[in-house]
Structure formats: C-alpha cells, structure tokens
Simulated scan of single mutants.
Amino acid sequence: MSALFIADLHLSDHCPENTRAFLDLLAGLAREVDALYILGDLFEYWAGDDDRDTPLNREVGEALATLAAQGTRIGFIAGNRDFLVGEDFARDAGLNILADPTVLDLDGRRVLVTHGDNLCTDDHAYQAFRHQVRAPQWQRAFLARPLEERKLMIEGLRRHSETAKQEKALDIMDVNSAAVDALLRAHDYPTLIHGHTHRPAHHIHHVDGLACERWVLSDWRGTATWLHWDGAAFSPGP
C-alpha cells in the first residue's frame, strides 16, 4: 500500500496559502495513495462540530469527503488545536478518528502514529493543561457553552499560549527522549511518526539494543509538506 502522512497545517482564514496547498494536495497527490493520515492540528482551532459550516470548514470538509468517496482512506488523530473534532464532522468529511497513539500495519511494517504533544513531558504546565482539556467531563461542559463564547475562550487561550511560549526554553517544548523510548518499548519497537514540535527530522533511537526510526513531520508554511510511504520506504516531500 501507499500512504501520505501530514500534520500541523493550522488551517485558518489568516493563512489562505495553507488552505490552498491542502486543497491542491487532496485533489492531486492524495488521490494517488491508498491512505492519508492527518496527525493533528489540521485546523488552527476547532470550537466544536457545530462550527463546521463556516466557509473554510465546509470547504475543507467537502474536499476531504470527495477524496474519501474516491477510495483514499483518511485517518485522523486530534492535535492540541483540534482535539474537539467530533463524530459529526468526521462522518461528513469521511474521516476515521484514530486513538492517540495508533499502530498501523504498512505492508508488514509496524508504524506508530501520534500527534506528539504527549511526548513533550518536560513542559509540565502544558501537560497539566492537556490532561484537563482531554477529559470527557471538561469537554462536555465546554461544548455546552454557546459557540461564540467558546470562540472567545479559545482566542484567549491561544493568546496565553503564545505568551507562555516566549517564556519557555526551546528544549522544554521538544519531545523528551525517555518518553519516546518508553513509547517505543511499550509498542514493541515500531517506526514512530509524529508532528507537533515543528522540527522536521529523521531520528534513530536505540532502545534495548534495537534501532527504531522516528520521523518528525513538518508544519506547513504556505506550501504542502508530507512523508510518503511507497510500500517499501519512507521519503519526505516535496
């Protein structure tokens, strides 16, 4: 089989270049592969599925649905910006929501996919926030608020997050090597693919005497970027 892996598009009205690049990918290269895996932060934010009819969200959802109808399987793992994507949007867009992490079988090769924020364990403040907002009780209470109130709250959280980033050491916002090793060990030493850190790279982790690959996906900055599996090997693109 063949597959594309992407993450951290941060689609929004403020960056139409990313949206155009994504729509072009869905209409082009994504039709040539068996599966497309979106590993989080497809959107800059997601206030709830009742916001899926904005022009941007509707256009993206319809393009995804078209791709799915043409036979490309689409897997989606929520990121730290769009963890409120729910079953309604997934059904309309043809997405299969995957657990974070999920093990895939690519032609007999075991591949572990995750957004990656769960590996940034040195950032204790962020991990506490992540634990809070991923709790079903918190999400139910948040989604019960009026949509416009939710959007205002999200904007406030985004501003706070950007301010907090300026005060943190860069290494704190990267993955923790011990956390990566533990995840690889827990899943029997697969290849690991993730995004979140915006630090695209190819790493080799030596865990318990075994060499494990880790691919870090790039964020999008006006152009599409991906990791391609051709049935035998991975290659970053374009």
Score class of each variant (00 low, 15 high):
residue 134 R to D: 00
residue 85 V to R: 13
residue 87 E to W: 01
residue 11 L to S: 12
residue 87 E to C: 00
residue 217 L to M: 13
residue 234 F to M: 08
residue 162 E to Y: 05
residue 63 A to H: 04
residue 192 L to Q: 04
residue 113 V to D: 02
residue 28 G to T: 04
residue 211 A to V: 07
residue 11 L to Y: 13
residue 102 T to G: 05
residue 143 L to Q: 12
residue 117 D to F: 09
residue 238 P to Q: 14
residue 42 L to T: 09
residue 59 E to Q: 00
residue 65 A to D: 01
residue 176 N to L: 07
residue 143 L to G: 04
residue 125 A to F: 11
residue 118 N to H: 07
residue 72 T to V: 06
residue 148 E to V: 06
residue 56 L to N: 09
residue 9 L to F: 12
residue 210 L to S: 14
residue 29 L to F: 14
residue 11 L to H: 12
residue 211 A to K: 15
residue 105 D to W: 03
residue 135 A to S: 10
residue 121 T to L: 12
residue 237 G to M: 07
residue 202 H to Q: 11
residue 115 H to P: 06
residue 29 L to P: 15
residue 234 F to Y: 13
residue 39 L to W: 02
residue 87 E to P: 00
residue 126 Y to L: 09
residue 81 R to G: 08
residue 95 L to F: 11
residue 149 E to M: 08
residue 9 L to R: 10
residue 45 Y to H: 15
residue 219 D to V: 02
residue 127 Q to Y: 07
residue 130 R to A: 08
residue 137 Q to S: 15
residue 15 C to R: 14
residue 222 G to A: 00
residue 191 T to M: 06
residue 70 Q to G: 14
residue 73 R to A: 10
residue 95 L to T: 12
residue 112 L to G: 01
residue 83 F to W: 01
residue 184 L to I: 10
residue 2 S to L: 10
residue 145 R to G: 07
residue 71 G to V: 15
residue 170 L to D: 09
residue 7 A to R: 05
residue 51 D to R: 13
residue 194 H to F: 03
residue 114 T to W: 00
residue 200 P to K: 10
residue 71 G to Q: 05
residue 107 D to L: 04
residue 229 W to F: 15
residue 213 E to T: 06
residue 174 D to W: 09
residue 204 I to C: 09
residue 151 K to Q: 14
residue 74 I to N: 15
residue 1 M to N: 02
residue 211 A to P: 11
residue 168 K to R: 01
residue 36 L to I: 09
residue 152 L to M: 02
residue 229 W to M: 11
residue 221 R to S: 12
